[in-house]
Simulated assay, not measured.
Amino acid sequence: MAVTKLLTIYQPEKIHINGKVRLQARFDDSGSENILWYESSETYGTYMTTERVDAFLVGLLWLALKKGQNILVKGALSEKLYYSLNHHLIPLIAQIYKHKHIKVLCDNLVSTPLPNEGAVGTGLSCGIDSLCTAYEHLGRAVPAKYQITHFTFFNTGSNQMMGSQKWQDKIYQDRVAWAKACAQELGKDLIVVDSNIHDILKMSFVKTHTLRNISALLVFQKLFHVYYYSAGYQTLTAKFNQDSASYDPISLPLLSTENVTFYSAGSNFSRVQKTRIVSEFELSYKYLNVCLVRIKNCGRCLKCKRTLLTLDVLGSIEKYKNIFNLEAFYKIKDSYIKEVIEGRNRDILFKDIYDEMVRRNYLKK
């Protein structure tokens, strides 16, 4: 497929709508105009970055890759991001997914940092990866300038992966309330960001989540100087696949700008190690949420049973009796153990659990 026409992105603007603040940018996709937007509360509207096109370039990158279009940025762009995308990240993504090698074009590159509050953030979904990152970066072992000051919750597509529109809206509101309550107990603000990026891209969330979520964070370059994006894979055992998390340790530093630095948090831990760390975090007994279908963890879905078996192997399962349906899990436990044993040579997460079973003589108990 040849590179045809341009995807043109214009300088963003900030508007007030329905008591919220929206940062939006117009873009032209081969003659068809549209708007990508990110919306948050008035409290954080002041930190929205109208001075750079960075957030919108990252958010629309997958659209251009899918269509094989070069991107023309009509506005100011971070020089560091421009260099990293053109010379490193775009070529990598093109090789992984066999896409055409596109280019970003811009004649207004800026290397001067914006005023910045020095905040440190991470997403708070309350899953294993998320709570592990939170626990690791709230203690004194982390230097003061790298300790978490704010949590984020981005509605960029994870809540639209299944179910009806009514169900998606409900699960989004439920997850926000859950995360907000957890953040409050930790004494931190939760910055909630809504966006129409899912409707714009119309692509697999799993394949594109890193760029979607980083684009939402780049909206607040006048607030954050460090952001931890929770790793989905252990770097040591990761192989490139359809999940963008499989190459996060490479892509995240390349998405950093003169203002904010991104880290792949927890990438040195296996999923079992993360679960053990989380099991030592008392707040997780109240807020751990891994379920694919509901806030009160069902105990039977893919993520619930994997987490519960790991917790059982670690001897910590009873700590979670108030937020998981343990009765439902115990009914399928034996069949799931069999599935893990049989699949350990083709699934790294199963192998991780199996190896822990062997270490702890779990199967002989």
Rank of each mutant, 00 (worst) to 15 (best):
L6D: 10
I15Y: 06
I17W: 08
N18K: 09
G19W: 13
L23Y: 09
L23T: 05
A25P: 05
S32F: 12
L36Q: 04
W37S: 14
E39A: 07
S40M: 05
R52L: 14
A55T: 00
F56E: 06
L61V: 00
A64L: 05
G68F: 00
Q69A: 03
K74H: 11
G75T: 06
A76R: 11
L77I: 02
S78C: 15
S78A: 13
N86L: 08
H87K: 11
V104M: 03
N108L: 11
N116H: 02
E117D: 13
C126S: 12
G127S: 07
P143W: 00
A144M: 08
K145D: 15
Y146V: 00
F151V: 11
F154P: 04
N155I: 15
G157V: 04
G157A: 07
Q168D: 10
R175C: 13
A179L: 05
D189Q: 12
D189K: 12
D199M: 01
S204M: 03
V206M: 14
K207G: 00
H209F: 01
H209R: 05
H209I: 08
I214E: 04
I214Q: 06
F224H: 03
Y228E: 10
Y228W: 02
S230C: 13
N241P: 05
A245K: 02
T257S: 13
F269P: 01
R271K: 15
R271W: 00
K274N: 09
I277Y: 03
F281V: 08
Y287E: 07
V293Q: 14
R306Q: 13
G315T: 02
E318T: 06
N322D: 15
I332F: 02
S335Y: 01
I353V: 15
D355F: 01
V358F: 00
Y362H: 10
